[in-house]
């Protein structure tokens, strides 16, 4: 069970910026339980976006967005609507957003912050994708997490340590920021790198009281 909290509508609209045509994709797994995904949250978000003057080109609900096979198969039916979209707003955890960004070549925006992994990392079989930092930056980095892909968790671009695209810590490890650079270039968002990104708010890593009342924490008692 992965715990997520909605980003504010103001923050989401700010990250969408001038993008008018949005495809909405929501997770029906853990995010449904946290009310950051699921059908009612999806419809709520659609209404909010339309109220703000956006055009929702299509919506899809997938049981587990961290399962790339499910995502790829489901989105194959939505190609037309995806092509009309300037970007995609993804209502799920950090693992799910990264899974989606590996499948589509358009900009993905996270609609939530991931605050606790609650003992499970998502169905995507990897334990290094999301650290539940509570302050999701995937929007700005093209769907590749700088917190987990950079050994120094840098937020403002590569350090001087990468050699031939590999990290100074381990010559087998890709430089996360080079991956982010290549991804942003591919989706036409290199200007994202010019933003001076603020220091992380580490206090957001603590799950809220509301989340701590959910079944997972009860079961742990």
């Amino acid at each position: 069970m992965i715990f997520t909290e909605n980003k504010s509508i103001a923050e989401i609209l700010e990250t969408l910026g001038a993008e008018k045509n949005i495809f909405l994709l929501a997770c029906n797994g853990c995010a449904e339980v946290c009310e950051t995904g699921g059908e009612s949250a999806l419809l709520g978000m659609k209404a909010e976006l339309e109220k703000a003057g956006k055009n929702v080109t299509g919506t899809a609900l997938v049981d587990f967005l961290c399962n790339k096979v499910l995502v790829a198969t489901r989105l194959a039916r939505e190609m037309d609507k995806l092509k009309q979209a300037d970007s995609m707003l993804v209502m799920t955890c950090g693992v799910g957003v990264q899974a989606v960004s590996r499948i589509v070549d358009i900009v993905v925006h996270p609609a939530a912050n991931t605050v606790s992994l609650g003992g499970l990392q998502g169905l995507w079989p990897s334990d290094e994708r999301c650290q539940a930092c509570g302050d999701c930056a995937l929007d700005y980095t093209g769907g590749i997490c700088p917190v987990t892909s950079c050994a120094k968790e840098l937020l403002n671009g590569p350090c001087g340590g990468a050699e031939d695209g590999k990290c100074e810590v381990d010559p087998e490890r890709d430089c996360g920021w080079l991956k982010i650079y290549e991804r942003l270039e591919k989706i036409g968002r290199l200007e994202n790198l010019k933003k001076v990104y603020k220091p992380r708010d580490h206090s957001k890593m603590l799950p809220s009281q509301d989340l701590r009342k959910t079944s997972f924490y009860d079961l742990e008692q």
């Binding site: 050994a151 671009g157 350090c159 100074e168």
Partner: peptide, 24 residues
């Protein structure tokens, strides 16, 4: 500066901080 990663030094098990980066 950002600083070299602790793994390159002589206390490899140290906790790297990197709370801010060089820009911040």
């Amino acid at each position: 500066l950002t600083g070299d990663h602790q793994k390159l030094g002589d206390h490899q098990g140290a906790k790297g901080v990197f709370d801010l980066d060089s820009v911040q």
